[in-house]
């Protein structure tokens, strides 16, 4: 009985992940075999020319994406950590308005935000800048981060903080030396998501950064598709490389992901 379920589970997973397999398969296919009919199901004769081309052309874009991701994590944490603490511990009542605002904030379509940012950045001269993109990308993560930190910090026993205060620590000191270390796991969860969302962002990049020389890798792939549709092995190789952070998260940080997905949505 149990083995039967495992078998079905493997088949279902295989079907679900077929597009991912196909991406890897195509990335290893020779340009000459790309239009073979029927397509090659398995890269018997793999080539790394796609990866060589991808790394040759997209390395700066990958570095840009990495930098934008890290910058977004920093902005998100700086804004959300103190706010989460204030909402959870310092103002436990009367925070309904902020909750509501954060919920509404998450409902605003990205295209609307993009237009708003565009209208502002064009005046400030911040179009096509990495800093502008970092700020825009952080809006993807901040509401989620505040809600997650608030939920987590509300669970820190008051007694621990009272003890710190008796020892003479002020609010800031308590926050830094007691609350932050205890919140390590939620900081990791938020950082991972903020990074992943910024890394994956396409809408802000394609609107606020579209005529820049320093583009993130999502835009790099998009331009790639537009330019040379014959070299799908290079495109798919870039896609595989762009998927590395996701794979990293899945393998090394899976429990933080599950924590993040369910944090916003499930009542237990």
């Amino acid at each position: 009985m149990k083995n039967w379920r495992t078998g079905v589970g493997i088949v279902l997973t295989g079907v679900m992940l077929f597009p991912v397999y196909w991406m890897v398969n195509v990335s290893l296919t020779r340009t000459g075999d790309m239009r073979a009919d029927p397509p090659h199901w398995f890269p018997w004769n793999p080539t790394f020319e796609g990866y060589a081309a991808a790394l040759g052309q997209q390395l700066p874009a990958l570095a840009t994406s990495l930098f934008i991701g890290l910058g977004t994590v920093a902005v998100t944490l700086i804004v959300a950590l103190p706010a989460g603490y204030a909402l959870a511990k310092l103002l436990p009542r009367g925070t309904g308005a902020i909750d509501f605002l954060l919920l509404v904030a998450q409902m605003i379509p990205a295209v609307v935000m993009a237009m708003g940012f565009y209208a502002i950045y064009i005046r400030l001269g911040m179009l096509n800048t990495v800093a502008g993109l970092i700020v825009a990308d952080s809006t993807l993560a901040v509401p989620f981060a505040v809600l997650l930190f608030r939920a987590f910090m509300a669970g820190i026993p008051r007694e621990i903080m009272a003890a710190a205060q008796i020892d003479g620590a002020g609010t800031w000191r308590t926050f830094r030396s007691v609350v932050l270390p205890l919140s390590r796991n939620s900081v990791i969860t938020v950082s991972l998501f903020a990074f992943l969302w910024a890394w994956s962002d396409f809408i802000f990049a394609s609107t606020l950064n579209r005529s820049s020389d320093t583009i993130p890798v999502t835009l790099g792939i998009f331009r790639y598709i537009g330019n040379n549709t014959t070299q799908w092995n290079s495109i798919m190789a870039t896609a595989v490389i762009a998927s590395v952070p996701a794979a990293f998260l899945l393998v090394l940080a899976q429990r933080y992901i599950a924590a993040g997905v369910t944090a916003g949505a499930v009542k237990d």
Partner: peptide
């Protein structure tokens, strides 16, 4: 856990693969 993969991939990756 493997089922999470499509959700974690950048959209440009999934969209161009499709």
């Amino acid at each position: 856990a493997m089922f999470l993969v499509p959700w974690l991939l950048p959209l440009i990756v999934s969209a161009s693969t499709w």
